[in-house]
Amino acid sequence: MKFSIYRYDPDADRKPYMKEYDIALQESDQMLLDALVRIKELDDTLSIRKSCREGICGSDAMNINGKNGLACITKLSDLKEPVVLRPLPGLPVIRDLVVDMTQFFEHYNSVMPYLINNDPPPETERLQSPADRKKLDGLYECILCAACTTACPSFWWNPDKFVGPAGLLQAYRFMVDSRDQAEAERLQNLEDPYRLYRCHNIMNCVDVCPKKLNPQAAIAAIKELKIVRAREKKTAAKQKKPIPLHPVKDKPDA
């Protein structure tokens, strides 16, 4: 099977180049990652990231025939030859198919991806009703592979300012969590022309997500939530009621 792979070694190469490979596959080689491992047996200078080989760790995200995806869950039989493999677009290349994800994780960190709850912890877990738990479906499954963020043109042009679909999906995941008390701060955190509003509903993120999640819907939900909360503030100000510091959320079932 024919492959064309992006190669760059910062110590040896001045510029990245494409290298062609033609390798014989064995019957057990079903996924793209199997083929990459086979190539690495022949040419051990090729650098790739991999770990779980089953679409859970998100290490082997790359641009496969122009579309971001995970090599380990991409079937070889679905790919057109020659298979063109490039690193994730828009992130600095460390070597070959390995990119520097620092910026990606900085954005992830900036949305406070952890539960903020100042109540004293109960003796058991903080309980959640099944309905509240259901709100997290489609959000918590993200594996942070960066396929969506690096497929987003808005991120390509403003990688230092736009949080990107993966980070915003996580921002929303904690906004809707019934146990979280920092919704207002989280919304305020995205009040900036770049961090949230560079999203123009292009939907490349939804197109590439290997976990079939919908970051665009989460971003739209954040935008809507901002409007809803601003309206509530306005009506509260009109009625001269004190504004609740934390929005009232459904109490968990006893």
Partner: peptide, 9 residues
Amino acid sequence: RDVFRDYVF
């Protein structure tokens, strides 16, 4: 303004 924010750095 959006276009400039996207492409003029």
